[in-house]
């Protein structure tokens, strides 16, 4: 079939999908008087006099950013050493680890939150009711994404040989970790981090039903009184998530071009953790071919 027809199809679907985004931009540019357009609503966000009405929103943004950093740190500290240990010493357990990491896809967040409510009863007693404790729950929800991102990188690298070489040359294990393992997996770690940040910034279900304030719950609350501010922040958040995922894609492309033996860190593969129930798709295949 002709290339032109396929491109035309993409253009049509692309335009239809652009419509809601354009509508969001148009909505935020409407002038408060009801006729014409202006930047009034955008200016109002930064207006010190209106600061009080947006306090909740800014608190939500702050909380979400903190949670994103904490969740990324938590997931990396727990998952990277575990995956490295399993792949080096217990390769048979990889299937088990993969299964565990994929379970959060089968269990919807709305179901998980039913069981998290009593767990958080305990968490609040032990660690207090701070918003940061949500990072513990978010770590679980990002597991499939993070696992997939790291797995792509891990299966494409000869970590076993590299660590053995480092050990033969007399490197201690902490040194191997910092100078061999982390640099080798840096693209996977970066992809896992970005995806974690994007997921956490978009999370609503758990925060809302556990009565915590994050970006999304604040957006819903603000939208009742000031829909313009809500749409502006939603646009910015979507743009931010898009940038993060675009960077993952670019990192992957840079790698594919620069290091011939490594697999391209396919952004779609790492992002489509929903498809993670399947074994690694094309990237691993292509890496084998490259080797």
């Amino acid at each position: 079939m002709s290339v032109a027809l396929r491109r035309a199809l993409l253009a049509v679907v692309g335009l239809v999908f652009l419509l809601p985004i354009v509508a969001m931009v148009e909505f935020t540019l409407r002038s408060p008087s009801g006729t014409g357009y202006g930047l009034d609503h955008w200016a109002a966000i930064l207006d010190p006099e209106r600061e009080r009405s947006y306090r909740n929103l800014f608190e939500g943004v702050g909380n979400s950013l903190t949670l994103a950093v904490l969740t990324a740190a938590l997931v990396l500290v727990l998952l990277v050493p575990t995956m490295v240990l399993v792949s080096l010493r217990y390769p048979r357990l990889m299937r088990v680890l993969e299964f565990v990491c994929i379970v959060p896809i089968t269990v919807p967040a709305i179901v998980l939150v039913v069981g998290l409510a009593p767990v958080y009863g305990v968490v609040v007693r032990v660690a207090g009711g701070g918003t940061w404790t949500l990072a513990l729950a978010y770590g679980v929800t990002v597991l499939p994404f993070a696992f997939r991102a790291l797995q792509t990188d891990l299966s494409a690298s000869n970590l076993g040989t590299l660590t053995e070489a480092a050990r033969t040359l007399g490197a201690s294990w902490p040194r191997v970790l910092t100078t061999v393992i982390v640099p080798t997996l840096r693209r996977g770690i970066l992809a896992a981090t970005f995806i974690t940040v994007a997921v956490v910034l978009g999370e609503y279900t758990i925060a809302s039903l556990l009565n915590r304030v994050n970006l999304q719950t604040a957006l819903v609350q603000v939208s009742r009184s000031d829909p313009y501010a809500a749409v502006i922040f939603a646009l910015l958040a979507l743009l931010f998530a898009f940038t993060l995922l675009l960077l993952i894609g670019r990192v992957g492309t840079a790698r594919a071009a620069g290091v011939p033996t490594a697999a391209p860190a396919d952004p779609a593969a790492s992002a489509s953790a929903l498809a993670a129930a399947a074994p690694p798709p094309s990237p691993t295949t292509s890496s084998k071919a490259a080797r």
Binding site: A198, G202, Q216, L238, A241, L245, A271, L274
Partner: peptide, 15 residues
């Protein structure tokens, strides 16, 4: 397109 797809498919929600 890949990045837009990921954002819309998985991180949109409320937005």
């Amino acid at each position: 397109i890949d990045s837009v797809s990921s954002v819309l498919a998985q991180f949109g929600g409320v937005m």
